[in-house]
C-alpha cells in the first residue's frame, strides 16, 4: 500500500470520526444533511458486501467495519437521539435523495466490470458516493450554516479525495494491469462536485466573516 492510499484512508476515516465525535460531544447536528449521511451509509453497506466473501487484510477488514459503524452511528444520532434530532434542519434538508439511488442503480446495471450481484453493487456504491455530497451542498447553500461544518471536516474530505487520485496515478505507473475505469471516472466526478461544495463553504465562511465587521 502506497503512502497516498494510506493518507487517503486516514483522512477519510478522520472526516467521518470528527463528524461523529462532534455530534456526540455538542449534541447537535445543525448544518449537517441527514440525506447525505444516509447515502454514505448505503455506499459503505453496498461496497463492503465482500466482508462476507473475501478476506484481503486485517487492515482492510477493520477499516471497513469502522467506516460502516461510524456512518451508521451518525445516521442513528440524527434520527433517534433525543437532543441531536431536535437540532436537525429537517425543513431545509429537502433534497430528494431517493431520486439519486435509482439512476445510480440503473447505471450500475448497465456499466459494471462483471454482471454479477457483487460487481453491480460495487459499481452502484461508487456512483452513489460520487453524488452523495449533493444534499449537503444544497443544505449549505440554503442555510449558510457553517458552524458545524467545521473547517476540519471540509479539509479532511478534500484531502481524502486528493490523496486517492494521487494513489490511482501512482498505482497506474507502478503496477502492471492496474486499470479501474469505473473507480477513476466516478472518483473524478465526486471530486468535481466536492470542489463545488468546497467553494460554497469558503464563500459562506468569507461572508460570515464580513458580517462580523463593524459597520
Amino acid at each position: 500500500m502506497n503512502m497516498f492510499r494510506f493518507l487517503g484512508d486516514m483522512t477519510h476515516l478522520f472526516s467521518v470520526l470528527v463528524l461523529l465525535l462532534k455530534i456526540h460531544t455538542i449534541k447537535s447536528c445543525a448544518g449537517i444533511s441527514l440525506k447525505t449521511q444516509e447515502l454514505y451509509a448505503i455506499v459503505f453497506a453496498t461496497r463492503y458486501l465482500d466482508l462476507f466473501t473475501d478476506y484481503i487484510s486485517l487492515y482492510n477488514t477493520v477499516m471497513k467495519l469502522v467506516y460502516l459503524g461510524s456512518s451508521l452511528s451518525i445516521v442513528w444520532y440524527m434520527r433517534r437521539h433525543k437532543l441531536v434530532r431536535r437540532s436537525y434542519d429537517k425543513d431545509q434538508d429537502t433534497f430528494r435523495h431517493h431520486f439519486l439511488i435509482l439512476p445510480c442503480l440503473i447505471l450500475a446495471l448497465l456499466i459494471n466490470e462483471k454482471f454479477t450481484f457483487m460487481e453491480v453493487m460495487w459499481a452502484f456504491s461508487l456512483y452513489l458516493e460520487a453524488v452523495a455530497i449533493l444534499p449537503q451542498l444544497v443544505l449549505l447553500q440554503r442555510t449558510r450554516n457553517i458552524d458545524n461544518l467545521t473547517g476540519q471536516y471540509v479539509f479532511l474530505l478534500g484531502a481524502y479525495r486528493s490523496f486517492y487520485i494521487l494513489n490511482w496515478i501512482y498505482r497506474y505507473f507502478t503496477e502492471v494491469h492496474y486499470v479501474h475505469w469505473i473507480t477513476w471516472i466516478s472518483g473524478l466526478v465526486q471530486t468535481l462536485l466536492y470542489g463545488d461544495f468546497f467553494y460554497y463553504y469558503f464563500h459562506s465562511w468569507k461572508n460570515n466573516e464580513k458580517l462580523q465587521l463593524p459597520a
Binding site: 492510499r5 484512508d9 477519510h12 465482500d50 473475501d54 484481503i56 487484510s57 482492510n60 477499516m63 471497513k64 467506516y67 466490470e113 462483471k114 460495487w122 486517492y164 494513489n167 503496477e175 494491469h177 492496474y178 486499470v179 479501474h180 475505469w181 473507480t183
Partner: peptide, 10 residues
C-alpha cells in the same frame, strides 16, 4: 474492463 479482480481499496 479491469484485469485486477481484487478490490483492495476502500
Amino acid at each position: 474492463s479491469s484485469s485486477n479482480d481484487v478490490k483492495d481499496e476502500l
